[in-house]
Amino acid sequence: GQDLCEYDLDRDMAYLLRLWKVIVKRLGKTNGPGSIYEESDMIIRTIRDIFSEDIDTLIVDQVDSFNRAKEFLQLVMPKYVNRIQLYEGKEPLFYKYNLENEINRIHRRKVPLKGGGSIVIDSTEALVAIDVNSGNFRTDDSAEENAFQLNLSAAKEIARQLRLRDLGGVIVNDFIDMRKDSHRRKVERVLKESLRRDRARTKILRTSPFGLIEMTRQRIRPSLKRSVYDDCPCCQGRAVVKTAESMAIEVVRMMVMAAQSPKASRITVRVQDKVAAYLNNKKRREIMHLEEACRVTVQILGSEALYPEHIEIDCRDADGNEIALRFMDEPTSGK
């Protein structure tokens, strides 16, 4: 209950008292061993943790879920039970209210701000970095006033995105530089006020000389991104892959090592199309020199189906027997 207002504590107390009365009634009606209480499902937990008087309507598209949600609202907040509605349309609920697009926007790195400007959110192992960009945002001839107004808008959107994405840990917000100390304090206050609705505990430091506001947010569960996405098998979550040139150089080094193997006669390389094209066009001289010097035949095969860092090298002797390449077991690219 730390940092919660009296209203929130009173609401929680009222819920627990009503719940206890329901449990006592169930105990009185139960003759033998049986369940009197169990952890709520996702719909009930969502209503319990998120629903408030600020929400005008709660729409449910399944009869069973609607009945459970209505019963729970009657228990927790009886005066708001008329705000829940059963959706009976044929069109999927998410498409009717354009929720699919809104969900997709949550995962975008760049979030536009009203009136211009944007924030860019990057998550790393150590922290979450949020950068405020001015773009074409203009409200006044004064650069200071423009920066101040943009930062106010960004502070509200940052608080909203932290809740939507469920980002936790250390968060560094890089706002547009402001010279006036009063403007810095105002941005800090707006950020704190915008985070009051957040059930996760937050701690916000004062603006640093570099215009950074550092903060921490309680990590309750894995972020929304982690719940929806896995790391890319091609780049292992780096969001970048090696260029065709760098991959070709790596492949040439591996072919040289394979050619040094005793009895090596034929080397077949399977890589992505662009890497194969680079090897066949830009590295043809080195490959021919390797074939002559080590008396081996080299074949380069490319495929669009392979990811950019894929390397597969097959080495055979004159009789077609496979020669094991120990260096291929060592961790490198996407072998």
Rank of each mutant, 00 (worst) to 15 (best):
Y97V: 01
L19N: 13
L75K: 06
T216E: 08
V170C: 10
I213T: 11
D131Y: 02
I130W: 00
I36P: 00
V120K: 00
E245S: 07
S118K: 08
V60N: 05
Y278D: 02
R270Y: 05
V172T: 14
K203T: 15
E304G: 07
I130D: 00
T57K: 15
Q74T: 12
M288V: 04
L301S: 10
G32T: 14
K90A: 14
A324H: 09
P112K: 13
D177A: 13
C232R: 02
Y95N: 11
R201L: 12
N104C: 09
L212N: 12
V81G: 01
V128N: 01
V81H: 04
Q218E: 10
E188K: 08
G117Y: 04
L150K: 08
L86D: 06
K114C: 10
F66I: 04
D41S: 00
K186E: 11
N173V: 15
I267A: 06
V240E: 05
Q272D: 02
I249T: 05
L27R: 04
I84H: 05
A258S: 13
V296H: 06
A259Q: 08
S52H: 13
I36A: 02
K282G: 06
L191R: 04
I50L: 14
R201C: 05
T297H: 12
K335Y: 03
V187Y: 05
R316M: 14
V251T: 04
G237I: 03
K192S: 11
R48M: 04
I176L: 09
S134T: 15
R206C: 11
N151D: 14
T57D: 15
W20F: 15
I171W: 02
I249F: 04
Y7C: 07
F175M: 11
R184N: 05
C235V: 03
M288Y: 06
D12V: 05
G302T: 03
P308I: 05
Q149N: 12
M247A: 03
I311H: 00
I50N: 11
L150P: 02
G237A: 02
L152C: 13
E144Y: 02
P331Q: 00
V251G: 01
G168N: 02
D177L: 07
R253K: 12
E309I: 00
I267K: 03
E286S: 06
Q74Y: 09
P222E: 07
V170A: 10
G320Y: 08
M247G: 03
L290T: 06
R226E: 14
M288P: 00
I43Y: 06
K192L: 06
L19E: 14
S182D: 11
D329C: 04
S265E: 09
H107W: 12
P92D: 07
S40H: 08
Q260A: 08
I204K: 06
E125D: 00
N82Q: 12
R219A: 04
G168I: 00
I158F: 07
T57G: 09
H289R: 09
I323H: 06
L17T: 12
K274Y: 01
N104E: 14
D3I: 14
G211A: 10
G116Y: 04
R45M: 08
L325H: 02
